[in-house]
Computed example of a mutant assay.
Amino acid sequence: MTAAPLVKIAAEEPAAKPSLAGLTRDRLKLALAAAGVPEKQLRMRVGQLWSWIYVRGVTRFEDMTDVSKDLRRRLEELYVLDRPEIVSEQISVDGTRKWLLRLPKRGHEARAPEIETVYIPESDRGTLCISSQVGCTLNCSFCHTGTQKLVRNLETEEIVAQIMLARDRIGDWPGAKGPGDGRLLPQSERKITNVVLMGMGEPLYNFDNVKAAMDIASDGEGLSLSKRRITLSTSGVVPEIPRWGEEADTMLAISLHATNDALRDELVPLNRKYPIAELIEACRNYPGLSNARRITFEYVMLKGVNDSLAEARALVRLLAGIPAKINLIPFNPWPNTRYECSDWETIERFADVVNRAGYASPVRTPRGRDILAACGQLRSESLKLSASERNAASQGA
């Protein structure tokens, strides 16, 4: 009798404890209730943990000295205060830092997804560029991120965790020491003064999670970032723009890059669904729009593509009457791109036309180019999920 072949059964990975870092107040309340905190104590305990997590940045429950030892032990059994895993940290010659972060696997994901987050220090401020999706669906032809297909949306806590990890790494919690590597950091008390949703992904395609994350970021009893120092950049998801203004009330940036539909269809394919006229109308009606709350229009300078003086004049006409700032962005090259950056003289002539029309038109100094951390260069190596994996993940969520 032939023996049946041995079948090797892979042991299941033990389920990782969920992290409390990055949760909203409501979800933190649910987590504490699950840990056995009595209903009448929940509000107080949420307040305690909120302060420890978002004001002081603790990563160990044992450091929460005003929380009872019994509750600390119970929290230790059930939860962690972990940040995403740092796969790599690169520091540019100009002080820009880029982190490749690995997130926990969710549902039926075949592998742990990865995202990139960038910190850009200046003498008087520090800007953190965070991601909202793993990959992107938009396929903007000049953008390296667009060459990585969408894997999934980030959860609220995964968006917030990017801010918390960055504050860990640069010493931006009260009493914390800086990284000590001699690189440029702002002279201001806060090292992260601005957050921009300009990393991987289209944030308005992950509206609810991004909105909840920015509510945490702007909570005055926590991370306490001013909403005027939070900017959401969209390629033009027109139906969600007024909703974002009404519900989130942050600053808005539009990834524009062209003044006519034919060219923008090529550069920003989303334009085929929401053409320029609809996008500009949504901008004119953006809630709270004023000279004090201007919309930023981003315009990447592509040699021989969109950088003529005629296009500069068309840009001025297109935005007439909108309180706006126009950011001219020298194209940041990436492997195998077909585009080149406009010559500096061309950029200066373009900027002069815009400035004479009365618009603030700074030319954004490229930062972190040597580590592919500049605008349009972010791209992780996460794989696109197959349709069956995506469906399985949604079924298990």
Rank of each mutant, 00 (worst) to 15 (best):
E389D: 08
S19V: 13
E122G: 14
E298R: 08
L100P: 08
R294F: 09
L75N: 03
A374L: 05
K211I: 13
P242C: 04
R349P: 11
R169T: 15
N139D: 13
T127K: 12
E240C: 06
I53Y: 07
P333T: 15
V316P: 03
I254W: 03
P335M: 02
R45Y: 05
A213H: 06
I163F: 13
M301V: 04
I115Q: 00
Q48S: 03
M1L: 10
D168K: 06
M1W: 08
L383V: 14
D168C: 11
G126K: 04
L75Y: 03
A393W: 11
L372S: 06
G57A: 04
A277P: 03
P330I: 15
T259K: 07
E122H: 13
D94W: 01
R364K: 14
V7G: 00
I371W: 04
R284S: 07
S382C: 10
W344K: 11
L81Y: 03
R152E: 00
I347E: 01
I170K: 02
V354C: 13
G126D: 03
M214L: 15
N153F: 02
R111K: 09
E246Q: 12
I280S: 04
P239Q: 10
S226T: 12
D307M: 11
P38D: 08
L128V: 05
L372E: 03
M44I: 15
L101F: 02
L256C: 12
D70Y: 00
R152D: 02
W244I: 15
G220Q: 12
A34E: 12
R379L: 01
V196D: 00
G107R: 06
A373H: 05
P84L: 10
R43G: 13
S131G: 06
V305E: 01
E389Q: 14
E345L: 08
L32P: 13
P14M: 00
A248P: 01
A357Y: 07
L263W: 03
K227A: 01
A15H: 03
T231G: 11
P104C: 01
N336M: 01
M251H: 06
G95W: 04
Y205Q: 10
V87M: 11
G171F: 08
R272G: 02
P323Q: 00
D261E: 02
L289Q: 03
A393L: 14
P179M: 10
R367G: 04
L30C: 09
L309E: 09
L20Y: 06
G180N: 06
T231Y: 08
G222H: 12
E281L: 14
Y339C: 12
D215G: 11
I170S: 01
E76C: 00
L252W: 05
R293F: 06
N209S: 10
P5W: 00
G236K: 10
P362V: 01
S308G: 08
G376V: 07
L30E: 12
T59E: 08
R228T: 05
D70L: 10
T250K: 09
V195L: 14
K69I: 09
E114F: 00
Y79F: 15
